[in-house]
């Protein structure tokens, strides 16, 4: 009587539906617009402000000073500025929605009774977060380049090593920066997915992840804790500046990549361990 035909093990319908769900949500659209607004505001502010005010303290290479000379640096400066809070918050929003949000709306129980296997559910949810993690830096960089070109013009770019590279190559390197930051944010997203399986309150997961990210950055500034620094998720995020050296030293990027991959393995496993047998009482 009941002929169950389980169709292809691999189908993109669920993933597409997930990406669409993320994309049509107004809050996410507004968040992306806010991320994109930062480089525009920054470029205008630099244009308006008097030259020679490039003083800035703390982490990462300083790209602000070079903006006036080449619009290319608007993208890098904006990425650096958004890396401590704005980008992590964006990922935290997505992660909060991923599992806790579905639980909160009561949609989780209906997904599971469809049935969507729990591993498959986590995989698709994480894929959605990863998509956001890579899209966000690209959007910031994209608007940064456009705003920079309009206000300051382009031309050959001076690398951190003092050499000159063409604008086209500089764009390629910017793409590398975005991919590197995408990976870093995807690792943060893995932590977020885990947090999202712990609660039915999406805001709780979001705030927890944003706080974790900020706390990690703060700990990274404390010299007495330098034994801890290599293990901090955020420690190597500012290494993206390495893409602006000549030649690009992939070795310098390795610690950041390794930390990101390690966080992914650990926290995706934790998310699976937590979620696979969890009672869904929402």
């Amino acid at each position: 009587m009941s002929q169950v035909d389980v169709r292809p093990a691999f189908s993109l319908r669920f993933l597409r539906s997930e990406l669409r769900l993320i994309a049509v949500r107004r809050r996410n659209q507004a968040g992306l617009a806010a991320l994109a607004a930062v480089p525009i505001v920054l470029a205008i502010a630099m244009k308006v402000a008097a030259p020679g005010t490039g003083e800035r303290r703390g982490g990462g290479p300083d790209f602000f000073a070079q903006i006036l000379g080449n619009g290319f640096f608007v993208a890098l400066a904006a990425l650096g500025a958004e890396l401590t809070l704005f980008l992590p918050i964006a990922i935290a929003m997505l992660a909060g929605d991923a599992v806790a949000g579905e639980a909160n709306q009561g949609t989780l129980r209906y997904l599971l009774t469809v049935p969507v296997g729990r591993v498959r559910l986590l995989a698709v949810k994480y894929a959605g977060i990863v998509a956001g993690a890579f899209l966000a830096p690209l959007v910031v960089a994209g608007t940064g380049i456009i705003a920079g070109l309009i206000l300051f013009g382009g031309g050959d770019v001076t690398t951190l090593s003092g050499t000159q590279i063409g604008f086209g190559e500089a764009l390629l390197r910017l793409l590398g920066v975005c991919l590197y930051l995408g990976l870093c944010l995807a690792a943060l997203g893995a932590v977020g997915l885990f947090l999202s399986t712990l609660t039915e309150q999406p805001m709780g997961a979001t705030i927890a992840l944003a706080m974790l990210s900020v706390a990690s950055a703060v700990l990274g500034q404390v010299p007495q804790l330098d034994w801890l620094h290599p293990y901090l998720l955020t420690q190597h995020w500012t290494d993206f500046g390495e893409f602006l050296r000549d030649p690009v030293s992939l070795g310098a990027l390795r610690p950041g990549v390794l930390v990101a991959l390690s966080y992914m393995v650990v926290f995706l496993s934790a998310a699976w361990a937590r979620f696979a047998g969890k009672d869904i009482t929402s």
Partner: peptide, 15 residues
């Protein structure tokens, strides 16, 4: 089993 089972559990839940 579940693809052949339609369920409504403790009220509706939608986006």
């Amino acid at each position: 089993a579940l693809p052949r089972v339609g369920a409504l559990v403790e009220g509706p839940g939608f986006h």
